[in-house]
Amino acid sequence: MVKHSQLIIDSLVHPKKLAAYRLLTIGKTIQYVFLLIAVVTIYSFFQFLTGVTETSYNFTGLTEYVKDIQWLLYPFAFVLLTLTSTILIFIRVSIYAFVGVILLKVMHRRGEYRHMWRTAALAITWSTLLTVLLSILKISSIVSTILGILITIILLILASTKYPKIPKK
């Protein structure tokens, strides 16, 4: 059984191994995706707690009300951040898997959507970690998004080269 730490290392350092992990169980892959979701959620919640995402509106009554219900606001915010991160990351992986299937067809490689979904789930590691890092460094989210898309597509291309070729007729 492959450990999550090995998946992280291979996702970051050995992109060609991503194709081999297409045979992982879906449960292990989903566990890995939830590990990435946890990283994003914890970072987002830390931003929320420290007030980095605070808006510039200054409503005296509203700020007093928020101070009164903080004990309720924090758990609700954590659940909402977790739910939002989960939905967005699963959608991202699914879109990348679709792009990966197109890459497989163009490169005349054999593979199915389910295989490419597992590969895409591992390929988003760099873009997820870079998004958090670039957010800490206060770099534009547009730059972060474009860089993440490029890196993930490159990783999918590298992984696709290791998928088996379609035999010629």
Rank of each mutant, 00 (worst) to 15 (best):
D68L: 15
K28H: 08
P167M: 03
I139K: 08
I9M: 11
F46V: 14
Y113D: 02
F46P: 00
M116F: 06
I146N: 08
V99M: 02
L134K: 00
Y43P: 03
Y74T: 15
F76R: 08
L155Y: 08
Y74P: 07
Y21H: 11
Y96V: 03
T86A: 12
T152S: 12
S127G: 05
S44H: 06
P164F: 01
F48D: 04
D10R: 02
I142Y: 13
F48K: 07
I142L: 15
S94Y: 10
I8L: 15
I26Y: 12
S11F: 01
S56C: 02
S144M: 10
T41L: 05
R114D: 11
H4P: 02
I89N: 09
I42G: 08
I69A: 01
K17M: 12
L104V: 01
S94F: 13
W71A: 15
Q6H: 12
R22Q: 12
I136Y: 07
T145C: 11
T60K: 09
F45Y: 12
L122I: 06
V93F: 03
T86I: 06
R114I: 15
L12V: 09
I26C: 11
S127D: 01
L130A: 08
G148C: 11
K105P: 03
W71Y: 15
I157K: 06
I30L: 05
S94K: 05
T29I: 14
L12I: 10
G61S: 09
I87L: 04
F76W: 13
P15K: 01
L73V: 09
T50W: 03
P167I: 03
S160T: 10
L72W: 04
K17T: 11
I42D: 00
V101N: 01
F46N: 04
S160D: 05
L81Q: 06
Y57G: 06
T86V: 07
K165H: 09
I154H: 04
I9E: 12
L18K: 06
L103F: 10
I89E: 03
S85K: 02
P15C: 10
I153Y: 01
M107P: 00
V101K: 03
F34V: 05
I102P: 01
L73M: 14
T131H: 13
I8H: 04
A121R: 00
V13W: 07
T86W: 07
A121I: 00
